[in-house]
Design a protein around this nucleic acid. Structure first.
Lengths: 209, 209
DNA sequence: AGATAGAACTGACCTATATCAACGCCAAGA
DNA sequence: TCTTGGCGTTGATATAGGTCAGTTCTATCT
């Protein structure tokens, strides 16, 4: 195994013996962009730990519209609810970039969690992080309108905003590319952002959300 | 203390000694409808455990519109993220009915969690439940439109649906009372529900979401 | 340089839902 | 019995954002 568990946040402060044990039922996978990691409805058996890349979790609604629930990034745990609850995965996971992840046999991991307080603590931390994340998604999506969401996005991603394609940003924000284009025009007109000089007036943006 | 911790899900399978210890830094509270439990921005010190009633968690957005993030029910934990992360509460909690809850000194509870695997497990279960809940909110709100949400609501609340005031249902669902009224009319016209006979055709409702 | 394709932009239109306003219904109190 | 206030209903209107279609821009390939 090339990925070393001890470098992963979830396994911080875990003794070597336990790590070795976990390695025995953990497998490493690489999947390239746009391939499916698991489907909605699949029976869970493994806990997924995203090591590198981005995984998109989405549902296909009745009218065949794809609704993105969440993008996962490094060190995030995927599928813990389905595993803990023994219910099928409620959504489909797809590689949004080339990704590297671990599949951990859940039943076996559970035993380790029970017998190792540090491991239990790490799982807890990871769950809390996830809750925070979900709460953030909810408040962003329910409280803010499109313009506010765009302002928040630029504010939080001022580093890479100008290097990211608008259609991708639109997808992440859950707005149509046309709407995003119009909103960006608004900010350009107000000289809050400038695409040529790659300037973003963070103070001014902050006012919007 | 009249509420006995051993009857509460969070303390299931916890030995008496530990429970007694926890009781030492737990206080019981009763708050009547419409009073505030804590405010957005407050520094967290206690973990709240709702014993009875409903607590509404909401944010007040920039344009003074109140956005409900979540309703808490029996046995739910409130504020664990703020406590674990040491950040101020991100939203305001208000009693939506007369409520009974416990305030548990978080720093002290943390020690107990560390030293007691069963307690760690129970916290974990509670966190998982919460994640499931949040994911459900997200998929309901992002994936379903109003009519679908109403259908789902009636389906899941067929017991008390006819006893609940429409304005309350509208608030829970995050739609205006007018919209709810029109949607209900639609279901009445299709004879999927009947307010007189308190009949709801669950099969038919299921088709809508 | 010209060709091509994907991205961005723009205007016209559509749709879901909110908002506003008016009205009727019904239960509780006078 | 009359009054009152909250709730539900209904129609008219407003609005945010999506969809569609056409155009322009830009970067890459030949």
């Amino acid at each position: 195994m090339r990925v070393h568990l001890e470098n992963i946040v979830l396994f911080k402060n875990i003794d070597e013996e336990t790590i070795n044990k976990i390695e025995n039922f953990t497998t490493e996978h690489r999947v390239s962009k746009d391939n499916i990691v698991f489907y909605e409805g699949d029976e869970p058996k493994y806990l997924y730990l995203l090591v590198k890349g981005v995984i998109k979790l989405y549902k296909t609604s009745s009218n065949h519209k794809e609704v993105v629930l969440k993008y996962f990034h490094d060190n995030e745990l995927i599928g813990e609810v389905a595993n803990f609850e023994g219910m099928p995965y409620p959504a489909t996971a797809k590689a949004y970039s080339d990704v590297e992840f671990l599949k951990i046999d859940f039943e076996k991991l559970k035993e380790v969690i029970f017998s190792n307080p540090n491991m239990a603590f790490n799982i807890q931390t990871s769950l809390i992080k996830k809750i925070k994340n979900l709460e953030n998604i909810i408040s962003t999506n329910l409280v803010l309108d499109s313009k506010e969401r765009v302002a928040k996005y630029i504010y939080n991603h001022s580093e890479d905003f100008f290097e990211t394609k608008n259609i991708e940003i639109a997808e992440v924000l859950g707005v149509s590319p046309e709407t995003l284009s119009r909103i960006l025009k608004f900010f350009k007109d107000k000289e809050i952002i400038n695409v040529k000089t790659k300037f973003a007036d963070k103070e001014a943006l902050r006012e919007f959300f």
